[in-house]
Simulated assay, not measured.
Amino acid sequence: MADPGFPNQHTTTTTVTNTEVITNLRYDNTYLYTLEGKLKIAQIACVILSLIAISFSTYNMWYQNSAVTSISMFGFWFSLFMLVFYLFHVVESFYKIPWLKIEMIFNACWPILYIISAAVAAGQTGLNFSYTLSLFFGFAAMFAYGYDALLKYQALQRGELAQGNNVVHKQTSTTATY
């Protein structure tokens, strides 16, 4: 006779997550057509345009320009390297490195630095049009980095890889006893 406190059957669910990555380096331009790829291109373009605008100022030797120039150049190089890493699947080859977390931290810090440097440029907008132009592109870069940080955060919450696939296999079995 079955105990009334226990059910007559139970269900067991086994979840297995496999990581599927291809570790050889190869060129694949499909990343450019994803939202993250378009954001990387927008970041690079806005940073370069901000840098060019501040460099052609008649007051380009002022100390305020060094903040904008430094932030723009470091953002340019980091975004360019990450774009190349995604295009050549370096990120997928080294999938054990927490790429999403690294990018999320960088993309979360860069809007803060851009708002500071844009505020410095905004203080000089009465002096030169190039400061206003640099301010515009700095704010555009700030929003691109901020949105990319949000996307990286959401991907981390879902447990995604930066490149490659996590394949989840679920197996459910029901056992009945009478």
Rank of each mutant, 00 (worst) to 15 (best):
M1L: 08
A2L: 13
A2G: 00
G5P: 00
T12M: 09
T15M: 06
T15W: 01
E20W: 06
V21F: 06
T23I: 11
T23R: 15
N24H: 13
L25E: 02
Y27R: 13
N29K: 11
L32V: 07
L35C: 00
L35D: 04
I41Q: 08
I41P: 03
A45N: 03
L49S: 10
S50V: 02
S50L: 13
I52Q: 05
F56P: 01
Y59F: 15
W62D: 13
A67M: 07
V68T: 13
T69L: 06
I71S: 09
I71R: 03
F74Q: 07
G75P: 02
W77Y: 12
W77N: 01
L80K: 04
Y86I: 01
V91Q: 05
E92P: 00
E92Y: 06
S93P: 00
S93A: 15
K96Q: 15
W99P: 05
W99R: 04
W99H: 11
K101H: 08
I102Y: 11
E103T: 02
M104L: 07
M104F: 10
I105G: 00
N107S: 14
C109S: 08
C109G: 01
C109F: 14
I112D: 03
L113R: 03
Y114C: 05
I116V: 15
G126H: 09
N128F: 05
F129K: 15
S130A: 06
L133P: 01
F139S: 01
F139Y: 15
A140W: 10
A141G: 04
F143E: 03
A144D: 04
D148L: 12
A149Y: 15
L150Q: 08
K152Q: 14
K152W: 05
A155C: 01
R158M: 05
R158V: 00
E160S: 10
A162S: 15
G164Y: 10
G164I: 09
V167K: 07
K170D: 10
K170Y: 07
Q171K: 12
T172P: 06
T172G: 00
S173K: 12
S173N: 11
T175H: 15
A176R: 11
T177R: 12
